[in-house]
Design a protein around this nucleic acid. Structure first.
Length: 304
DNA sequence: GGAATAACCTGGATGC
DNA sequence: TGCATCCAGGTTATTC
């Protein structure tokens, strides 16, 4: 389940291998991986073949590779990737066997590293690739991590900056939370408010901040919102340092290796186990087609 | 316009 | 052993 730390690990692994590389060939094995692309598989292959990759950038859970323009000019388009729930981007030797659930393969040539294959594999097909236009950022700040260019793919423009982004504005986040009449967990999962947080890190952040997931966002004090934001940052940074979270084979870095943050979880996936803070059992409840894990003692339910 | 909900999808786990 | 059902969850279209 790739969230910000997992996607950043993939981006960081991908960047040195693809920056400056030229796409020699593209194979689309399953067009369901192109649901965000405006054309079909043939269009995708033709539009990408021969292009030079300039960067590897990320905002929230979206990853994109800006493509040099005609005659090597400024990028006007990018290859955009979203891993969905089970997407993987793997670096393989040229001619490597087809991966299980492989959807798209790019054969690239790097001036220093030689030939490589970039494989997009996705079991549940929630992830996707697309070629999309780059548009200027409204705040003129870099579009995301890994790039200095003040541009972002059009389909990522509505995604807020993530809490680790230097251009993230705490005041805007506080104002958005103060306007929301819905549960704070729903707000944390709203990528147009703050990006990169998914079900795992939402549960962990709320546990750390001692806030019940169903507390109404606008009922929280400024102090509580500040504490929550600080905890979101601390948890994302820790997860990033540990290579992300992995419960199964669905999340791996570009070399196919898993992260270690699952060993550091305090609430998510620990139903019935003692809360590391108070010792009472963690509970799991159904929440908007998801599961919420929290400590009912440390995270008091909102008053009815 | 804001909030809530359903649908998309696959494979592992579970129950019968 | 085989089949049916449930569950995981990010994003977005649809509904209220």
């Amino acid at each position: 389940m790739p969230e910000l730390p997992e996607v950043e690990v993939v981006r960081a692994g991908l960047a040195p291998a693809v920056t400056g590389a030229t796409v020699l060939g593209v194979s689309v094995l399953d067009e369901r991986a192109l649901t965000r692309h405006s054309g079909d598989g043939l269009h995708f292959e033709a539009a990408l073949t021969g292009r030079r990759i300039v960067d590897a950038a990320r905002r929230g859970k979206f990853l994109w590779l800006p493509l040099a323009g005609a005659s090597g000019g400024e990028p006007g388009e990018a290859l955009v990737a979203h891993l969905g729930m089970s997407g993987q981007i793997l670096l393989r030797e040229p001619g490597a066997p087809v991966e299980r659930h492989e959807r798209v393969r790019l054969d690239i040539q790097h001036p220093e590293h030689g030939d490589l294959s970039v494989v997009f594999a996705d079991q549940r097909t929630f992830g996707s690739l697309a070629i999309d236009a780059l548009i200027p950022t409204p705040d003129a700040a870099p579009g995301g991590w890994g790039t200095t260019a003040a541009s972002v793919p059009a389909q990522v423009a509505h995604i807020a900056r993530d809490a680790l982004d230097p251009a993230f504005r705490d005041a805007d986040f506080r104002a958005a939370v103060a306007r929301k009449d819905s549960a704070i967990k729903r707000v944390l999962l709203d990528q147009s408010v703050v990006s990169g947080v998914g079900n795992i890190y939402a549960d962990e952040s709320l546990w750390a901040a001692r806030i019940h997931p169903e507390s109404t966002a606008k009922s929280l004090s400024t102090r509580a919102v500040n504490r929550l934001l600080a905890d979101v940052r601390a948890i994302l940074e820790k997860a990033l340092a540990e290579g992300g979270t992995s419960f199964d084979a669905q999340y791996v870095n570009v070399n196919g290796q898993s992260g270690y943050f699952s060993h550091s979880l305090n609430a998510y996936g620990r139903t019935g186990q003692p809360c590391p803070r108070c010792g009472r059992p963690i509970v799991r409840v159904s929440f908007t087609n998801r599961s919420s894990h929290f400590c009912p003692h440390c995270q008091k339910a909102p008053k009815a």
